[in-house]
Computed example of a mutant assay.
Amino acid sequence: MSETKRALITGITGQDGSYLAELLLEKGYEVHGIIRRASTFNTHRIDHLYQDPHDPDARLFLHYGDLTDASRLVTLIAKVAPQEVYHLAAQSHVRVSFDEPEYTGNTTGVGTTRLLEAIRMAGIDTRFYQASSSEMFGATPPPQNEDTPFYPRSPYGAAKVYGYWIARNYREAHDMYAVNGILFNHESPRRGETFVTRKIARAAARIKLGIDTDVYLGNLDAVRDWGYAPEYVEGMWRMLQADEPTDYVLATGTAYTVRDFVRFCFDHVGLDWQEHVKFDRTYLRPTEVDSLIGDATKAQEILGWKAQVLPPELASIMTQAELDAHRG
């Protein structure tokens, strides 16, 4: 009987981390997650996966840790000795990164170095996934693939570029199995409420139910490539099962504006979006990313991965989830 695989997920309480934990548990993994200590519970996305750690059959374990605490990361890596590490944790809100550029760089950028160095110092044989981002492309015209030059337009994008290159450096300098998953926008009902897609879906549902009357948004002309998060975490897993480590773009290859997404959500509830959407310049970024459209040909050819859920269906999934949640 083969040994149970162990995986460590940073950012396990986030959207992607929760879906990835589900996927790995379904595949029979023992899953360990790093969570930050907080004065309030922040595990709601994974509460349904909870297992008593004292149960001999338990396969989900949570550990306190932080990307700014290098010694703790070394201790955890050595203790867990995972065969796979999925590094998803970050300060991941692009607009907030302009307000907190140093913190974003320290966690999203240098935090990746601390984790890679912890793996190297522990001397374990593991496969490492780095959550890279389409925001690294920034101002570079679409379509964007693995060979497209980076031109980040935010502290978040710049920090992700650092994380991308440090992962490649550890792959090339230390012969580490490290891959960069350059994921374009991927959403779900578990997206944080401050992210634009969730904000729009939530607003459409609340306005339909008479709870709210308006929603305030920034740039409606930004073009994005939106996919469905559960499909993207399967792509992450496939990257670490490949024979050789390399970097991949995951995307739908479709282009829709924020305005389109607004229309899809409000159409789902039978409302005219133009009667309820208001402009608020405080949501504009100092430097905007106009268009991100990914080319995932490499992932399809090597990993057999292809996005199935496209933005119109995604908007309906998210808006219906909000309706269901508010109706109880």
Rank of each mutant, 00 (worst) to 15 (best):
A70D: 06
L284G: 00
A251P: 04
A204T: 08
D221P: 00
T4I: 13
D295S: 03
I34V: 15
E275L: 01
A122G: 10
P53H: 02
E234R: 12
G253A: 01
A131I: 03
T287S: 05
W226P: 00
A251G: 04
G33T: 13
L67K: 08
S18P: 02
A255V: 04
A38K: 14
P286C: 12
G65I: 07
I182E: 02
R191I: 11
I207Y: 00
V277M: 01
L217A: 02
F184T: 13
I207N: 00
M121F: 09
T246F: 08
P152D: 08
G14T: 08
H32V: 10
P189K: 09
T113V: 14
A203I: 03
R281S: 15
E288I: 12
P189L: 06
H276D: 10
H54M: 02
L24G: 03
D125K: 15
V94F: 02
I207D: 01
P143H: 02
H32P: 07
W305Q: 04
G163V: 05
F184D: 10
A38Q: 13
R281Q: 12
H87W: 00
I200R: 00
Y151W: 12
Y177R: 02
S134G: 15
R238P: 01
A255C: 09
K306R: 14
D175A: 09
R59S: 09
